[in-house]
Design a protein around this nucleic acid. Structure first.
Lengths: 352, 352
DNA sequence: GTTAGCACTCTCGCCAATTGACTGCTAATA
DNA sequence: TATTAGCAGTCAATTGGCGAGAGTGCTAAC
């Protein structure tokens, strides 16, 4: 492909992303190639169409990028576009004020990412059980339940468990301390799996904790199951899909929105690992029929090479790829900072 | 109004709520008045139109209820329609498993009510500071923050506050116990306002708690402000508005949905007290211009005569009033049960 | 390789005619 | 007096045709 064709194609795609109306030869002339005539541009556009990057909706209309055209654009222009400063600050604020429950954080991130990009966002929490335990607290409440708080390197896991009222508060404190000293720097999964071994090993010392541990593990398993049954997905900002002219058709929009609340569909997109920083799938590259006239952006947050959470944006193929890429990069970056911060902290102030 | 007119009107409204298409004379004949001719029915419909209960969109179309017609229907038919058993169980489950944060509970209730009715739902948390304290716990975390847990008669208030790492855990326990014994059976507002007095009164005994109390009160005030700034509103299920044929027009739907995320608008509907169990406002009865072709249902949850939370449903005037009324009644009923249960519990197991 | 010019194609908005669904009204009937 | 049958009238919705406008493809000239 000649340099000129490349310029024209990239310009056409960019233009179309902004305007949402088919690109004409005069259109391009006024925006980037003022020294060429429309006739020449028509020849070039014709060639680009033959090459499969553009297509015409009908003989006498302008041209629209094909999935291949978008793909070319995405591969070429992956430079960052600076995000809105207010949005940046808002994202940063969420992470700043991070002594927050993991579940809430996931919701907030989905909200913010959707707001920043103006498309629906999906967050998939893949393995909270892989997070590294820093501290465990079991707090008995008056209502016959207790609150489990597990501080990890990426936020706090919280869950309620049933609790007998006749167990003294101190027992809960002791049990919590035991769990913290035993499982600090281990993963939650480790704790769930290995608590049995510790119990056997330590004999009657732990007898009084047994009941507590059993119900705690049960309730954590329950939480795992709950997250697993929803596939760990949280979708937010579905309404924003309606802002795109391509989804002014309600039925079309509904089909996409329905897919967003169907774990089975989303699974196919987010389950398989993805080692790119930001990946885009366009059109038929998406393994879900209902979404094949969409584009999906995805970024993963990984710890030690394992993906903990995925963030996805779903929109029309004519989505603002550059803006989305920078939003996702920024969010994932904040995630990483968070982890660095936490491990520092963890070293500094040991729990007695 | 004659009995026959009444029958015809109620039937027409009910029919229209189901079918969403204008009611014709032959329509009524086949559904309720098979012994009358369509001509007679036309005379009756004509009379009902003259009385202002129905109106024609154009000369040769069927008739549609006016706001006055819906109002008559609502006042007449307030009998309960049994709700879907699955929905009933789901609502019940939320309250059953009630050791849950107030904030989460509000979200879940909005979700469920919206799901049950198939319309957008709004929950307004008016005065969590009016709730009665049963127990206070301040739990220090590793990240330089502490978790405030206030168990009340209607769920747990939770919020984070900054905390110095060098304060020993026991101080937090003592501070928590002090707050619990001092303010149990008082409202949260009482605690926020009167903690100053207690501090002055008790002198240096409390000196070591001062810092903790100050930051706690600050952070609770912050929470109050945050809730106040959003008007305390949580809207869910906005998308369901699109299911109604009257909102297939996107712009029309968006105007309503925007109003639902505008505290200023919602305030006008939910701020003034409402002593009916379930109240409906139809059309111009709603004090918000953007919502004047909608209907709004509202139910309040009150403690000691004061409204703590309001639940609202927004939909087209052609909404299923009976179904909405029963869903709201059921939810408010569960709320009340909750309170009864809690005060029992409170008597039984005292905190040391 | 580039450009000007012309014919061609297709969408969109507009208008008129047709169709079909209901109603209102009038006159006949119980 | 209340009800009904029948007929004329009204209006929305659909259809088809027409013209304008936008944009292209192609060809011939530069």
């Amino acid at each position: 492909m000649s340099d000129r064709k490349r310029d024209i194609l990239l310009n056409a795609v960019e233009e179309y992303i902004q305007s949402a109306s088919p690109i004409t030869s005069s259109n391009i002339r006024s925006h980037c190639s003022e020294n060429l005539s429309t006739a020449t541009l028509r020849n070039e556009l014709n060639a680009l169409e033959a090459m499969g990057y553009l297509r015409q909706l009908h003989t006498s209309s302008g041209r629209v990028p094909t999935a291949k055209g978008y793909r070319y654009f995405v591969n070429s222009i992956m430079g960052d576009v600076p995000l809105d400063k207010a949005v940046l600050d808002e994202i940063h604020g969420i992470f700043e004020n991070r002594s927050i429950y993991l579940g809430d954080m996931v919701n907030e991130i989905a909200d913010i990412v959707s707001k920043a990009t103006n498309y629906p966002a999906v967050v998939m929490l893949k393995g909270f059980e892989k997070l590294i335990i820093k501290n465990v607290k079991i707090v008995p409440l008056m209502t016959g339940q207790a609150l489990i708080l597990i501080e990890t390197n990426s936020g706090i896991i919280n869950n309620f468990m049933p609790a007998k009222v006749d167990i003294p508060t101190q027992t809960y404190v002791d049990a919590s301390n035991f769990l913290t000293t035993t499982f600090a720097e281990h993963s939650v999964a480790d704790m769930i799996q290995n608590i049995e071994n510790y119990r056997v090993q330590m004999g009657k010392d732990l007898a009084e904790f047994c009941g507590i541990f059993d119900t705690m593990i049960d309730s954590l398993k329950c939480l795992c199951d709950k997250i697993a049954s929803s596939g760990g997905f949280t979708a937010r900002g579905q309404l924003r899909l309606l802002n795109s002219p391509e989804y002014h058709d309600l039925d079309k929009a509904k089909r996409v929105i329905d897919a967003l609340s169907n774990p089975k569909d989303l699974e196919q997109i987010f389950d398989e690992p993805d080692d790119e920083e930001i990946s885009f799938r366009i059109g038929t590259e998406i393994p879900v029929t209902e979404l094949q006239d969409c584009a999906v952006a995805r970024a993963d947050y990984t710890i030690d090479g394992e993906s903990i959470a995925s963030i996805g944006i779903i929109g029309p193929q004519r989505m603002d790829y550059a803006k989305i890429a920078s939003a996702l990069k920024f969010v994932v970056g904040e995630f990483a900072n968070l982890k660095a911060l936490d491990s520092n902290k963890g070293d500094k102030d040991e729990q007695k």
